[in-house]
């Protein structure tokens, strides 16, 4: 799904990093949005709706609509359309609304 050739744009070579999605090892580019790395790998179901268990993908890609919330490194409700990919990240489809960790375990994320 990656664009190799484009008449106007030139996509610079970026560093490839390894991450884990639902226990699968995957590769993406460092610093790209997690959703872009997943989409490039053909994964577009990012979560399930809390009430009706409907498949959810991303929608706005600018961190606005909350359609793409996932669990990243144990932290729920992360907007993966703006959260950037790093080596070794563990990304999961979130089920339910997510649990807010104790303050000392929050790892700096605002929930």
């Amino acid at each position: 799904m990656r664009i190799d050739e484009h008449p106007i744009l030139c996509f610079e070579k970026r560093k490839t990093v390894k991450f884990v999605f639902e226990d699968l090892e995957m590769y993406g580019y460092e610093d790209e949005p997690i959703s872009a790395a997943l989409h490039a790998a053909g994964i577009d179901v990012l979560s399930r709706s809390p009430k009706h268990n409907r498949a959810r993908g991303f929608f706005c890609a600018i961190g606005n609509c909350s359609s793409c919330l996932m669990e990243v490194d144990g932290v729920p409700n992360v907007r993966v359309c703006t959260e950037r990919l790093r080596e070794g990240m563990v990304v999961r489809r979130q089920s339910g609304r997510g649990v807010i960790a104790e303050p000392e375990d929050r790892g700096g994320h605002v929930l």
Binding site: I3, A36, H39, A40, R54, F58, A61
Partner: peptide, 23 residues
């Protein structure tokens, strides 16, 4: 309208023109 694959035009532009991924 909530299915994955239904995307805003801005999101499609971001994905292809910024991230270099086909929607």
């Amino acid at each position: 309208n909530d299915l994955p694959g239904v995307y805003g035009a801005g999101a499609v532009q971001t994905l292809m023109n910024v991230d270099g991924v086909r929607p």
